[in-house]
């Protein structure tokens, strides 16, 4: 039993420095802390404001006689979204979604496993961390040309890039969450004879969950960025490719429509993880 590795952490509980979860390297409160609109009235006013803004934009574009190739009108974008969706947007959307999720699943699985590994074997941390930092700070889109030389123009290079963008984010946040687990809680588990696995399952993992969720949220947003960016570089697939295509043809309302789809995707990711956070980690609020 690893009683020894606790020994040198124990009695500074009184210093009250033990962080009860929450703000890791990436501050949750900034992203997840936006207050949710409550009640029909509030939701209605938020929607009403959005309608006013869009309508205003429409009229400004009309009054200033702005050409569609300079700035497409909201109505044109919306019309295109509805009429062209099955023909122009559905397929690239599925392509992006597919690569994104594949990359996310592979990346986060590896990231989470590495986080568990460095928690169980703290000595490994100093060997792994430098690479993780490099991966987190380097834009993975930059790798795409190289990966395409190696793996061709199919899904593979993009999936790899997305994994490399999401994995380290998940890893860094999860590892921080695991490591920050209140030493007294670990001691509590040990005093009841918990095995290392039980400590993980019953104490470390739930304690780190809010941070893991943030890791997933930020990682996914990085992943989407990489997905769309990579499609813009080459390969002839996905929403990113459509952005390049429509802008080169100066079909700005279609371009706008794709942009709206990408933005919706991003907001969807954000909302999903905010929802998960509220559902599974509400104790951390």
């Amino acid at each position: 039993m690893a009683t020894d590795n606790l020994a040198d952490k124990i009695p500074d509980f009184n210093s009250a420095t033990v962080n009860q979860g929450g703000n890791g390297p990436v501050d949750v409160s900034a992203i997840a802390g936006i207050r949710r609109a409550k009640g029909l009235k509030e939701i209605a006013s938020v929607i009403a404001l959005a309608i006013v803004v869009v309508t205003l934009l429409e009229f400004i574009l009309i009054w200033t006689h702005t050409e569609a190739y300079v700035f497409p009108k909201p109505t044109a974008i919306i019309r295109s979204l509805f009429t062209d969706f099955p023909t122009l947007y559905w397929k690239p959307l599925t392509q992006t979604v597919q690569t994104f999720f594949l990359g996310l699943i592979i990346g986060s699985t590896i990231g989470l496993s590495l986080a568990v590994l460095v928690t169980l074997k703290p000595g490994l941390d100093i060997f792994i961390s430098p690479y993780i930092i490099i991966l987190v700070t380097t834009p993975m889109v930059a790798l795409i040309p190289f990966l395409m030389l190696k793996f061709g123009f199919g899904m593979t290079p993009r999936v790899i890039a997305i994994s490399l963008a999401t994995g380290p984010m998940v890893m860094i946040n999860s590892a921080t969450g695991f490591r920050r687990t209140n030493a007294e809680l670990i001691a509590l588990g040990k005093s009841y004879g918990a095995t290392e696995f039980q400590l993980f399952r019953k104490i470390r993992f739930p304690f780190a969950l809010p941070m893991i969720i943030v890791g997933f949220m930020v990682g996914s947003i990085f992943g989407l960025l990489t997905a769309v960016g990579a499609e813009m570089v080459g390969g002839g697939m996905g929403l990113g490719n459509r952005l390049i295509y429509f802008s080169s043809l100066v079909q700005m309302s279609q371009f706008g429509a794709v942009l709206v789809i990408v933005a919706t995707f991003g907001v969807g990711i954000y909302s999903f993880f905010t929802f998960i956070n509220r559902k599974w980690a509400s104790w951390d609020a």
Binding site: N14, Q20, N182, A187, L188, F207, D284
Partner: peptide, 12 residues
């Protein structure tokens, strides 16, 4: 049995 400072109940 150990009883810790700060109750040490799992908040979740």
């Amino acid at each position: 049995g150990m009883v810790f400072q700060d109750s040490n109940l799992l908040p979740w």
